[in-house]
C-alpha cells in the first residue's frame, strides 16, 4: 500500500518531467496511462528528418484520481522536441478530450510546449484545431478542462490557443503564455520590436505574473507540484460550461482590456494602471507579497 498522504515531497514543477508531474499531482498510485511507451506509438514522421523518436511521442495521457474523484490527465514532456505537437502527440490529447465529453469527466492538461512541431507542421496544426474543438465540446457537456502552466518550454504557439479554450488556467511565475515566441518575433520583425535576449522583457511580457495580473490566468502558484495539486483541486469545484453567457462575458473582458491597456508600451505601464505602487518591483516579489500586490488585478471569473 502506498499511503494516501504520499504527495508531500517538495518538487519543482519547472524542473520535473511530465511523469514526475503527474505522479505528484494525482492521488498516489492512482494513475493509469493510455497507450503508454510500451506500445511504441512513435512519430511516423521524424525519421524523414533523421531525428530520434520517443516511445510516447512526448505526451503522457491517462486517468487518475484527485481527492478520490476520477480525472483525465495529459502531460507534455518539454524535454522531447520542446513538447511540440505532432500527429501522434496531438491525437492522444484529442482522444482524451473526446473521452472527457463522453464520460463527462474533468481533464487536467499539463502544458509544456513550444507549439506545433515543424517537422510535421500540417498534422500538428490540425491537431491543435481538433483539440480546441474537443475542449469546447467537453466543456459544453459539463466537464472542466483545467490548464496547468509552469514548465520549461512554457506554453507557446498552438499550445497557447488550446490554453485559451480551457475553463481555468493555473500558472506559476515560470509559466510563459504567448502565441509568437520571442525569437519568432525578433526574426520576423527585428530586434527593435522584440529583443529575445532581454530575458527580463520576456518574463514581464509573457510570464506568469503578468498573465495573472491581466486576467490571462486564474490562479497563481509557487513553482511547487503540491501548489499545483491544491490549485487543481480548487479549480475543479466550480463548473461553468461554455455557452453564450460565458463568451459574452469574455468579449466584454477582452474589450475592456484593450480599452484600459491598449496604449501601454510595456507591462510595467499596465501594472501601474492596475494601481500597483511598486510596479517595478513585481518581478522580484515572492508569491505572498505578489498576491497581495495583485489585489486589484483583472480577473476572468465567469468569463473564460
Amino acid at each position: 500500500m502506498i499511503a494516501a498522504t504520499a504527495n508531500t515531497d517538495s518538487l519543482s514543477w519547472y524542473e520535473a518531467s511530465a511523469r514526475q508531474r503527474i505522479d505528484a499531482l494525482v492521488d498516489p498510485g492512482s494513475f493509469a496511462e493510455f497507450i503508454g511507451p510500451e506500445q511504441r506509438e512513435m512519430s511516423p514522421h521524424l525519421s524523414i528528418f533523421d531525428l530520434p523518436e520517443q516511445f510516447d511521442d512526448g505526451i503522457v495521457v491517462g486517468r487518475g484520481r484527485l481527492e478520490g474523484s476520477p480525472v483525465l490527465v495529459a502531460a507534455q514532456e518539454g524535454r522531447f522536441m520542446g513538447g511540440a505537437f505532432g500527429e501522434v502527440h496531438g491525437a492522444k490529447l484529442t482522444g482524451l478530450l473526446r473521452a472527457a465529453r463522453a464520460l463527462q469527466q474533468d481533464v487536467l492538461i499539463l502544458f509544456d510546449t513550444g507549439g506545433v512541431r515543424l517537422q510535421e507542421a500540417n498534422a500538428g496544426e490540425l491537431a491543435i484545431a481538433e483539440i480546441m474543438r474537443a475542449v469546447i465540446e467537453a466543456r459544453r457537456a459539463g466537464a472542466n478542462v483545467i490548464g496547468l502552466i509552469g514548465g520549461r518550454a512554457g506554453c507557446y504557439g498552438g499550445g497557447s490557443l488550446i490554453a485559451g479554450t480551457c475553463s481555468r488556467l493555473i500558472v506559476s511565475e515560470q509559466g510563459r503564455i504567448s502565441v509568437s515566441g520571442p525569437e519568432v518575433i525578433e526574426t520576423n520583425k527585428g530586434i527593435e520590436e522584440f529583443d529575445s535576449r532581454d530575458r527580463a522583457l520576456v518574463w514581464r511580457t509573457m510570464g506568469g505574473k503578468h498573465r495573472y495580473l491581466i486576467g490571462g490566468a486564474d490562479t497563481f502558484v509557487d513553482d511547487e507540484a503540491l501548489a499545483f495539486r491544491q490549485a487543481a483541486m480548487d479549480a475543479l469545484k466550480v463548473t461553468r460550461g461554455c455557452g453564450v453567457a460565458v463568451l459574452e462575458a469574455e468579449q466584454t473582458r477582452l474589450e475592456r482590456r484593450l480599452q484600459r491597456f491598449g496604449a501601454a508600451r510595456d507591462a510595467v505601464e499596465i501594472w501601474q494602471a492596475l494601481g500597483i505602487d511598486t510596479s517595478t518591483d513585481i518581478p522580484a516579489l515572492p508569491t505572498d507579497a505578489f498576491l497581495a500586490a495583485a489585489n486589484n488585478r483583472e480577473n476572468a471569473d465567469d468569463a473564460r
Binding site: A163, I177, S178, V179, S180, M206, R211, G216, R257, G262
Partner: peptide
Amino acid sequence: DELLGLSE
C-alpha cells in the same frame, strides 16, 4: 499584441 494576451 503579445503583451495584451493575443492567445486569449
